[in-house]
Computed example of a mutant assay.
Amino acid sequence: MDAAAQNEGQEPLADRLITASAVFEGSADIAEARVLARDFLTSVEADHGLPVSARAMGMVHLVVSELVTNARKYAPGPCRLDLEISEGAVQISVWDSDTTLPSVQAADAERVGQHGLEIVMAVSQTFCVHREPVGKKITASVVLADDPGGNAVGRQAM
């Protein structure tokens, strides 16, 4: 049976929502968040046929690590990680219960620590913070594929 016959009556593969979510409550769960992200992107490539560059894999791993670490460090209670494929990028959203919006400090090579959001903003195509009815949600996106020259597709030249 061909793929078209198998998918008869279903949404086209490219139009299906590809997502993963998890709630984390302890600092040890930060490693689990990274594993979830890696497994999600592996599935996106293997099961859905979307290309995921090595750069994208590394950047998503980094963004998930920084955002979940910040949520666990600064907010009481659990945090939620949502991953979604949209328009050739992975949208990484982390919700936490703290209503205080993060502030990105000016670059300072002398400062030790507190560079997480700077890093996330530098490697992401988009970055935004939304206040929620309870807490806040930070969303960043990372393009999945690189152009033939190795540059991130869709990344705006500075």
Results as ranks from 00 to 15, higher is better:
residue 13 L to M: 11
residue 13 L to P: 02
residue 14 A to C: 01
residue 15 D to L: 12
residue 15 D to R: 03
residue 15 D to K: 00
residue 15 D to F: 05
residue 20 A to R: 15
residue 24 F to L: 09
residue 24 F to V: 03
residue 26 G to K: 09
residue 27 S to F: 09
residue 30 I to P: 01
residue 31 A to T: 13
residue 37 A to G: 15
residue 37 A to C: 10
residue 40 F to Y: 14
residue 43 S to P: 00
residue 47 D to R: 15
residue 50 L to T: 10
residue 51 P to Q: 02
residue 54 A to K: 11
residue 54 A to G: 11
residue 54 A to E: 14
residue 57 M to G: 12
residue 61 H to I: 00
residue 61 H to T: 13
residue 62 L to F: 07
residue 62 L to D: 06
residue 63 V to T: 06
residue 64 V to P: 00
residue 64 V to K: 01
residue 65 S to N: 14
residue 65 S to W: 10
residue 66 E to F: 01
residue 66 E to Q: 05
residue 67 L to M: 12
residue 70 N to M: 04
residue 70 N to A: 03
residue 71 A to Y: 01
residue 71 A to N: 01
residue 74 Y to M: 09
residue 75 A to N: 05
residue 77 G to I: 06
residue 78 P to G: 06
residue 82 D to W: 06
residue 83 L to G: 09
residue 84 E to D: 09
residue 85 I to R: 11
residue 86 S to N: 08
residue 87 E to F: 11
residue 87 E to R: 12
residue 90 V to I: 09
residue 93 S to L: 07
residue 93 S to I: 06
residue 93 S to Q: 09
residue 95 W to C: 03
residue 97 S to P: 00
residue 97 S to H: 14
residue 98 D to H: 05
residue 99 T to P: 14
residue 99 T to Y: 01
residue 101 L to R: 10
residue 102 P to K: 08
residue 106 A to C: 04
